[in-house]
Nucleic acid binder design. Structure first.
Lengths: 235, 235
DNA sequence: GCTATAATACTGTGATCACAAAATGCGCTA
DNA sequence: TAGCGCATTTTGTGATCACAGTATTATAGC
């Protein structure tokens, strides 16, 4: 499929993006998929060495991630992976419900049959992942499905805000998911897609938002891994 | 009031914040209050020279402001003050209505009598500014009043999202305000505060959100200064 | 053995340097 | 005079250096 000819090197289009951009993408992925432990501190030189670059692009990436809320910076400037408290988690999830509800309402009229077919694939992958308790696949499919819907809202600002919230929720979803025997309600995505297909975006949005909130409550009530405070005891 | 003794130098507490932090604050203010013309490009070296610093902290500030959405970065990396299109403006204002409504509902129960008195001062200043057609004072009082309310929501994430939206809307509010003979509805803030005092946060939120939306419509229908596209013809 | 102190390493911050790509301006030609 | 091509300058990007504040650790004293 790949490697048309002329060398056939496995280098992809040799992304001409600046280094700090690629670093940002890499760190973003790592954070959203929860590959960092909350409280872990990321030093400029440390990350630079890990990536084999100079400290400079790392500095740019980290400060950008801090600005995006993906990382936290304590008073002395050290950048750490945020420990999310119960309060913050609730806040983020409730805001997610509000904004993603809106995004779904806006998107529903613009979802065509082709899009629906594609979305159903994600929904299927989601159910598979749930059945297999595959957290990684679950989170990935979940993101593909949700943003696959939201992008049809044609609201870049809204999309950006939602991504921002996901970024804030990301570091712990992974951790928490480990504790959950049955994560989420697998049939929910199908209902959402059905409602969208029938043209009742309101109902779809309602289901989706409710799912987010019940997921939140499940997590809040089930687990014991919460940190006491955001900026304390970073051991 | 100030200058306890021991020198009495007019240096304020000699803010020990890092340079890039102060630069960020300065640029933030300048952007929100619309002191930059949309499309204007901000070069690292240029700003550095203007502030009398090295390019380094400027680089940090600019990239952070880009991450926050206050500035735009076109493909080649140049940072420019975003030209806001009608679509983006509508989107931002509608999202403002949604989020600030929520913030008001959350805040209302927590607003005490002392807070109310303080808020009434801002409302008064707002009315004064409107009467005098003083755009600068208007925007300042408006911000003081609104965020004076929202901070009682005790929702840092929500507050951050709202600030983000203000940042996106800022660059043009100022410009547009120049064209408007009568900006906004001066009695609105008073109604909001009255409702809050009576304990009906829902009603207050409703009034506030409606004010945002009517303001948006006023601006959309009145003015002619809109740019055609975001990333084009940056002359 | 414990604590206080001093030395060391670490880390964030800012400055300067170097390089490549893009934009700009100028001159030449048709 | 309009269009094209080249040279200069600007500008973003990355690297390295320097410095100050902080945390850590080792050591000496009680």
């Amino acid at each position: 499929m790949a490697a048309k000819a002329a060398g056939a090197l496995p280098v992809v289009p040799l992304s001409h993006e600046p280094l700090h951009e690629r670093l940002h993408a890499a760190l973003w992925e790592a954070i959203v998929s929860g590959q960092f432990v909350p409280g872990q501190k990321l030093t400029v030189r440390g990350v630079a060495e890990a990536f084999g670059t100079s400290p400079m692009p790392v500095r740019a990436s980290l400060s950008r991630l801090v600005a995006e809320g993906a990382l936290t910076q304590n008073p002395n400037g050290t950048v750490i992976v945020p420990k999310v408290t119960r309060d913050t988690f609730s806040e983020v999830m409730e805001l997610r419900a509000v904004l993603e509800k809106r995004a779904t309402i806006l998107a529903a009229p613009n979802v065509g049959q082709t899009d629906l077919a594609q979305l159903r694939e994600s929904a299927l992958a989601l159910r598979e992942a749930t059945k297999n308790d595959d957290i990684i696949a679950y989170l990935q499919a979940n993101r593909a499905l949700k943003f696959g819907i939201y992008e049809h809202a044609h609201s870049p600002v809204l999309l950006e805000l939602i991504q921002n919230l996901w970024l804030k929720a990301g570091p712990m979803l992974r951790r928490l998911a480990n504790d959950l025997p049955n994560m989420g309600h697998p049939e929910c995505p199908d209902h959402v897609l059905q409602y969208i297909e029938r043209g009742s975006g309101e109902a779809a949005a309602e289901v989706l938002a409710a799912d987010i909130l019940t997921g939140m409550k499940d997590i809040l009530s089930s687990t014991t891994v919460w940190e006491q405070a955001d900026g304390e005891a970073r051991g």
